[in-house]
Amino acid sequence: MVGTVVQLGVVTLVAGIGMAMVRIVRGPEVADRVLAADVLSLKVVGLVILLAVDQQRSLSLDAALLVAIVGFASTLAFAQFIGMTRSGSEPPDDRTGS
């Protein structure tokens, strides 16, 4: 019973990754793309947890914690990047601020 749910869960999470990819490709602003990347990294954490459930061992949960930390750090870095491009070098044809 749990095995079936794990298989369905992999399908669900891959579908979620696909939706996040849609937003990464389509997103009109950088912020949309970054938040979609954040969601994608959390889906990867979910996949690792499903791996731990499948093996019924707690070894993979370490990897889940690591992926969560790396995802958070990358979100911070991208947010810093968004803030920097505004205060530092403004592109000449930027009309979003007005």
Partner: peptide, 29 residues
């Protein structure tokens, strides 16, 4: 391990979204 992961997620996910929202707003989204 799960408690550590959950603690990190509950602290870090809202903080990440605050920072993203702040950056997006300061950019005039």
């Amino acid at each position: 391990k799960a408690a550590l992961t959950l603690l990190f997620t509950v602290v870090a996910t809202p903080v990440g979204s605050h920072i993203l929202a702040k950056a997006a707003h300061s950019r005039g989204l």
